[in-house]
C-alpha cells in the first residue's frame, strides 16, 4: 500500500498562489524553470543513491560542489580555454570527488544511524578546508599561475571569478525556441543521460546491493553483502554526480562565487527532492525532476508575490528559506516516526 505523499500537491498549491500574486509572465517563469532544471538536476540526482542505500539525505553533496569549483579554478589558473577547459574542470573535479567520496563513505560507516547529521558537519568541515586552500593557500603555498585570480593583497582567490572563456559553449548548444520558451537540447540530453545513468545503476546487481542495504542493513550483511563497501560506493557516486552537477550549474550561470556558490546547495537540493514526493527512505528520478520544477517555481515567484501582497520583497525571500528548511524538518519528523512505528 503506497502511502500518498501530499508534498507535491502542497508545493504546487503554494506555487500557484504565489504565481498568481506575483503577476509574473508565465513565459518568463517557464524559461527560468527550464534554466533551473538544467542547473540543478544532477545535484538532486546525486541524492538518490544514498537515500536508496539507507543513508538518508546526503548533505555532503556540498563537497562535490566544492570539488567542481576547485576544478574551475584550476582551469582558470592554468588558463585552459574552451571545451578543453570544461573537460579539464570536470575531470579534476571528479578526481577530487572520488577521493572525498571514499573518505566520507568510510567515515559514515563509523557513524551508522547518524549519517545525516554527520554529513551536515562534514559539509562545514569541507567548507573550512576549502576556504583554507583557496583563501589562504593560493598565492602562499600554492603557486598561482594566473595572478588575475588573486585578491589585491596577493594571496587568496578573489570572491568572484568569471567563467567567460567557457560561456555559451555547451550552454546554448542545439537551442530551440518554441513560442518564446528556449529549450537547450544539448543540455537536456546531458540531464537525460544522467537520469538514465542513475536508473541503470539501480537495475544492476550493484543497484540491488544499494537497495538491500537500504532496506535492512543487518539482513543484507548476513546474506553476504559487504555493506560497508556498498555504502562507500554510494557516497562516491553521489559526490561525483554532485560535482558534475555543480560544473553544469556554474557554467550556466557564467561565473563562480568562489566562497558562496556552494552554500545551501545541499539544503535546496534536498528540499527539492522532498518537494517532488521523495522520502528519507525512497527517492526516484521522477521525484527529483518534479521536485525541481515545483520547488524552483516557488522560489522564482515568491519574492515578487511578497512584494505585491505585503509591499515587502524580503518577506518572499524569507518565506522560501522557511519552506526549504521546514520541508526537510517535516520530512525527517514524519519519516522517523514512521520508522519507529514499524519497529
Amino acid at each position: 500500500m503506497r502511502r500518498f505523499n501530499p508534498a507535491p500537491l502542497f508545493f504546487a498549491l503554494l506555487s500557484i498562489i504565489a504565481f498568481y500574486y506575483s503577476d509574473m509572465s508565465a513565459l518568463f517563469v517557464a524559461n527560468e524553470v527550464i534554466i533551473r532544471i538544467i542547473r540543478n538536476s544532477l545535484l538532486v540526482f546525486a541524492l538518490i543513491i544514498p537515500v536508496t542505500a539507507g543513508m538518508g539525505l546526503n548533505f555532503s553533496i556540498i563537497i562535490g560542489a566544492m570539488a567542481a569549483q576547485a576544478g574551475w579554478i584550476f582551469m582558470l589558473d592554468l588558463q585552459v580555454p574552451g571545451i578543453l577547459g570544461i573537460a579539464g574542470a570536470a575531470l579534476s573535479g571528479i578526481f577530487i570527488s572520488v577521493i572525498c567520496g571514499y573518505i566520507i563513505g568510510s567515515y559514515l560507516n563509523r557513524v551508522k544511524g547518524r549519517e545525516m547529521i554527520a554529513t551536515i558537519i562534514i559539509g562545514i568541515l569541507g567548507a573550512g578546508i576549502y576556504q583554507f586552500i583557496f583563501l589562504v593557500g593560493y598565492g602562499t603555498f600554492i603557486p598561482a599561475h594566473n595572478s588575475e585570480l588573486l585578491l589585491s593583497r596577493g594571496a587568496g582567490i578573489r570572491d568572484m571569478v568569471d567563467l567567460a572563456p567557457y560561456r555559451n559553449i555547451i550552454d546554448r548548444l542545439w537551442l530551440v525556441d518554441i513560442g518564446g520558451i528556449q529549450l537547450p537540447f544539448f543540455m537536456f540530453t546531458v540531464v537525460a543521460a544522467a537520469a538514465i545513468a542513475v536508473k541503470l545503476i539501480l537495475l544492476t546487481p550493484a543497484g540491488q546491493r544499494f537497495r538491500a542495504v537500504g532496506s535492512d542493513r543487518g539482513s543484507a550483511e548476513l546474506s553476504g553483502i559487504n555493506t560497508d563497501r556498498t555504502r562507500i560506493q554510494a557516497m562516491i557516486i553521489s559526490t561525483v554526480l554532485a560535482c558534475l552537477g555543480q560544473i553544469i550549474f556554474l557554467q550556466n550561470i557564467g561565473m563562480v562565487n568562489v566562497y558562496t556558490a556552494h552554500m545551501n546547495s545541499d539544503i535546496f537540493s534536498c528540499a527539492a527532492l522532498l518537494a517532488g514526493g521523495a522520502t528519507i527512505k525512497e527517492a526516484k528520478i521522477r521525484h527529483a525532476l518534479l521536485g525541481i520544477v515545483l520547488f524552483h517555481s516557488l522560489y522564482i515567484v515568491t519574492p515578487q508575490a511578497g512584494q505585491n501582497i505585503f509591499s515587502n520583497a524580503v518577506l518572499g525571500e524569507y518565506f522560501r528559506s522557511f519552506i526549504a528548511y521546514g520541508s526537510i524538518a517535516i520530512a525527517l519528523i514524519i519519516n522517523i516516526r514512521h520508522e519507529r512505528g514499524k519497529q
Partner: peptide, 19 residues
Amino acid sequence: EFALIPSFTAPENIMSGKE
C-alpha cells in the same frame, strides 16, 4: 530471524548476489 531483505520480492531475495 531470517536474513531476508524486507522490501525485496521473493525472487530478488532468493537470487540476491547471484542475479
